[in-house]
Amino acid sequence: MPQSRQSQISLIDTPYYHCVSRCVRHSFLCGRDTVTGQSYEHRRGWVEARLLFLSSLFAIDIAAYAVMSNHTHVVVYVDKALAQSWSMEEVLRRWHGLYKGTLLTQKYARHDELSEGEQLSLNETVNIYRQRLYDISWFMRSLNEYIAREANKEDECTGRFWEGRFKSQALLDESAVLACMAYVDLNPIRANMATTPETSHHTSIQQRIKALLNNAKQPTTLMPFIGHHRHDMPKGIAYSLKDYCELVDCTGRCIRDDKAGHIEHHHSPILQRLGINDEQWLTLTTEFEQHFSRAVGSEHMLQQYKNNTHHQRIRGMGQAKALLKRA
């Protein structure tokens, strides 16, 4: 039986989640339909642009994404504290960037005078909007509904475009986050859509590599890598961007060359810090979704997540012992 989204999202345990949406129709999300010969490649741009636009309005940062032929992957970071710090004006500015709101919120935005009763009603509405702006379900809804409408308009048809609810996985520790990000970034290579990370179009890794090659700052649309753990760390992923890009590149070479069991003949410094050996890493980055269901992390973190979400059992305990233990 499907689990409610509320029972899968536990911000007490982690702010990181892996979300996957798949098409239900024969017609493609993107790519070329081999049956009709029609190309839908331009839709990749729709998805990517919408995804990055939403991250500018929601209190949800994007750590990784990949737009594939019939599905999308995104790794997100939910920043609840940021949303709670926003003023009423900021919440409404962001919400009105997505939806019209109500007559009352529009009246407030015009700086019209409100009665005491209207102000109380507005406060309640703003609290609802604030919660939605750090809600993964609302984020994915704002992405998928928009793409479905655009695709239906282009195809001149109606009906369901996506395969029901999106799938989400809680990423409970650093190992799970890094492995899932690499798994997402390497999706085009595993699918033979690209030969290198830098030629993997409409992916987060391509954006990050372009910034490195141009000696530019990290992409402002993506959650940054901020280096090693230290005092008063800013928000971000606690590893070097250069190390991560090198790790993704050499992992991609192993995937393409079918050389399981090693990473370019040496052990990556990131893997040493994560405590994962080469074989474990290659298994995680090629079979991530096969081994875990609604949550990914060490055995201890999975047990804690199970208790906090009141599940009787969590699939993946055995794989957590084998793949995410200290090497």
Results as ranks from 00 to 15, higher is better:
residue 133 L to I: 07
residue 257 D to E: 15
residue 67 V to N: 04
residue 84 Q to R: 12
residue 209 I to M: 06
residue 266 H to T: 12
residue 67 V to T: 05
residue 245 C to F: 01
residue 65 Y to T: 03
residue 265 H to Q: 12
residue 315 R to P: 00
residue 263 I to W: 15
residue 43 R to G: 07
residue 278 D to I: 08
residue 68 M to R: 07
residue 206 Q to F: 00
residue 70 N to S: 07
residue 265 H to A: 09
residue 238 A to N: 12
residue 238 A to C: 11
residue 56 S to F: 02
residue 301 M to H: 03
residue 202 H to I: 00
residue 205 I to Y: 02
residue 160 R to P: 02
residue 118 E to L: 04
residue 63 A to R: 00
residue 35 V to W: 10
residue 207 Q to K: 15
residue 196 T to L: 09
residue 224 P to H: 02
residue 213 L to H: 11
residue 152 N to Q: 09
residue 261 G to P: 14
residue 37 G to Q: 09
residue 200 S to L: 05
residue 198 E to R: 10
residue 17 Y to L: 01
residue 113 E to D: 08
residue 325 K to V: 11
residue 301 M to Q: 12
residue 177 V to T: 06
residue 56 S to Q: 13
residue 191 A to V: 03
residue 258 D to S: 10
residue 128 I to H: 08
residue 41 E to I: 10
residue 196 T to G: 03
residue 315 R to D: 03
residue 167 K to F: 14
residue 78 V to G: 00
residue 10 S to I: 13
residue 312 Q to E: 10
residue 30 C to G: 05
residue 140 M to L: 11
residue 214 N to F: 07
residue 122 L to H: 09
residue 220 T to G: 10
residue 90 E to L: 05
residue 254 C to M: 15
residue 6 Q to S: 14
residue 101 G to C: 08
residue 321 K to T: 08
residue 264 E to I: 06
residue 215 N to Y: 13
residue 271 L to M: 06
residue 292 F to L: 04
residue 78 V to C: 08
residue 218 Q to D: 05
residue 152 N to H: 08
residue 112 D to H: 06
residue 84 Q to E: 15
residue 136 I to Q: 03
residue 62 I to T: 01
residue 23 C to L: 07
residue 325 K to Q: 14
residue 120 L to V: 13
residue 62 I to D: 00
residue 242 K to S: 11
residue 131 Q to H: 11
residue 319 Q to L: 08
residue 100 K to G: 11
residue 191 A to F: 03
residue 112 D to G: 02
residue 73 H to P: 02
residue 232 D to G: 01
residue 218 Q to H: 14
residue 223 M to G: 00
residue 273 R to I: 01
residue 6 Q to F: 03
residue 144 N to A: 05
residue 57 L to Y: 06
residue 309 T to H: 04
residue 119 Q to E: 13
residue 218 Q to C: 10
residue 115 S to H: 00
residue 93 R to N: 12
residue 107 K to G: 01
residue 31 G to M: 06
residue 88 M to N: 12
residue 207 Q to G: 00
residue 222 L to E: 05
residue 198 E to K: 09
residue 127 N to Q: 10
residue 115 S to T: 15
residue 285 T to E: 07
residue 167 K to C: 02
residue 98 L to S: 09
residue 188 P to Y: 06
residue 134 Y to I: 06
residue 273 R to D: 09
residue 301 M to A: 14
residue 277 N to E: 10
residue 172 L to D: 11
residue 317 M to L: 13
residue 136 I to H: 06
residue 54 L to H: 05
residue 52 L to T: 04
residue 135 D to G: 07
residue 281 W to H: 02
residue 36 T to D: 09
residue 225 F to C: 07
residue 312 Q to H: 12
residue 131 Q to D: 08
residue 135 D to L: 04
residue 4 S to L: 11
residue 65 Y to R: 01
residue 77 Y to R: 10
residue 47 V to F: 12
residue 65 Y to M: 00
residue 294 R to F: 14
residue 254 C to F: 01
residue 180 C to D: 02
residue 91 V to G: 06
residue 226 I to D: 00
residue 114 L to E: 00
residue 284 L to S: 08
residue 74 V to P: 04
residue 316 G to P: 14
residue 180 C to A: 15
residue 182 A to Y: 01
residue 46 W to E: 09
residue 43 R to K: 09
residue 243 D to E: 15
residue 154 E to L: 12
residue 35 V to K: 15
residue 126 V to H: 06
residue 14 T to S: 15
residue 217 K to H: 12
residue 57 L to R: 14
residue 16 Y to L: 04
residue 151 A to V: 12
residue 326 R to M: 12
residue 48 E to W: 02
residue 14 T to V: 05
residue 38 Q to H: 13
residue 46 W to F: 14
residue 247 L to N: 09
